[in-house]
Amino acid sequence: MQIGVLGPLVVQVAGTSVVPTAAKPRQMLALLAVNAGREVGMATLVEELWDDRPPTGPAQVVQTYVKQLRRALAGAVDVPCGAPGPRELLRRGHTGYTLDVPAPAIETEDFARLAESGLRQAGLRAAGHGDDPEAAARLLRRALGVWRGPVFADVRTGPVLRAEALRLDEARQEVLEARMTADLRLGRHAEILGELASLAERFPFQENLHALLMVALYRNGRSWQALEAFRRLRATCARELGIEPSARLQRLHQAILSSDPRLDTHLADVDTGLVVL
């Protein structure tokens, strides 16, 4: 079975999609898919599907959706003797239901495995002692390549799936920043400048992105634009949040003003006030 949520929902059995067109069964399948192999309790299903406004007899409605999903599974798989059927693939447990498929290929697990390996190579995991920016950039780029679009792109999401989407988006953001940091360490400031500028525009409060952009601009001989990037961030923080940029970013600003020679090679750790590269 193929399971993917990093973009439009994908649940395929033997190459055949079992994703329903109706919104609520699709939403329920998305929740079961992102928890494949783990039981999702009835209370969680009801919270996701209806939040705090469930219908009368929500368990019966959930059972109706389960029947629809099992019919889709039955239509997608030619069950040989002894192989699990629809009721085994979508199994009722003590408190809810489990999408219990043998050896599924799960997109989020591929992303997590590649991301963890890349972050270790970048020296960003306590368990890893790597300092190989080339390997880190390669692995992190592969992790980001698993994504096909926004999480649950074609699924109506309730509170449970929204929380899961936020978790996955935060993980992607960490990987993206680590990959661009590795690229900067490898001297690829010109190649990633456009991407950094676009991301800083999309995420105006992400200080790490702005710090990386400022360094890339400086290394491309555009100090004035690096200073302008700081000025815009400072104005946005003051206007929208009533705060100043962090002391770390202000020290980076001062380093650019003074043409600190460390900006041309490697940067020290956070305690010295620059950027981890």
Rank of each mutant, 00 (worst) to 15 (best):
201 E>N: 13
102 P>T: 04
132 D>M: 01
243 I>Y: 04
187 G>L: 10
128 G>Y: 05
100 D>W: 07
255 A>G: 00
7 G>M: 08
271 D>S: 13
21 T>K: 10
84 P>T: 00
39 E>S: 04
169 D>F: 07
183 D>Q: 15
150 P>F: 06
196 L>Y: 01
144 L>P: 03
151 V>W: 06
64 T>Y: 11
200 A>L: 09
87 R>I: 15
127 A>N: 09
34 V>D: 00
196 L>C: 05
166 L>N: 11
128 G>E: 01
140 L>T: 03
206 Q>P: 01
162 R>V: 07
197 A>M: 07
193 L>V: 03
81 C>F: 15
136 A>D: 05
222 R>D: 13
73 L>F: 10
186 L>T: 05
271 D>G: 10
24 K>V: 08
268 A>L: 15
140 L>M: 05
189 H>Y: 10
67 K>L: 12
98 T>I: 05
158 G>N: 12
237 C>A: 15
40 V>L: 05
61 V>T: 02
274 L>I: 06
189 H>C: 06
27 Q>C: 10
241 L>R: 14
210 H>I: 10
147 W>C: 12
21 T>L: 14
115 A>S: 09
190 A>W: 09
92 R>L: 14
132 D>P: 10
59 A>T: 03
195 E>L: 14
265 T>W: 11
221 G>A: 02
133 P>M: 03
179 R>G: 02
106 I>M: 11
210 H>M: 07
34 V>F: 04
165 A>G: 12
112 A>G: 04
261 P>Y: 08
258 S>N: 13
113 R>D: 14
105 A>P: 05
76 A>Q: 04
62 V>I: 06
153 A>C: 02
137 A>M: 05
154 D>N: 09
177 E>T: 12
76 A>I: 05
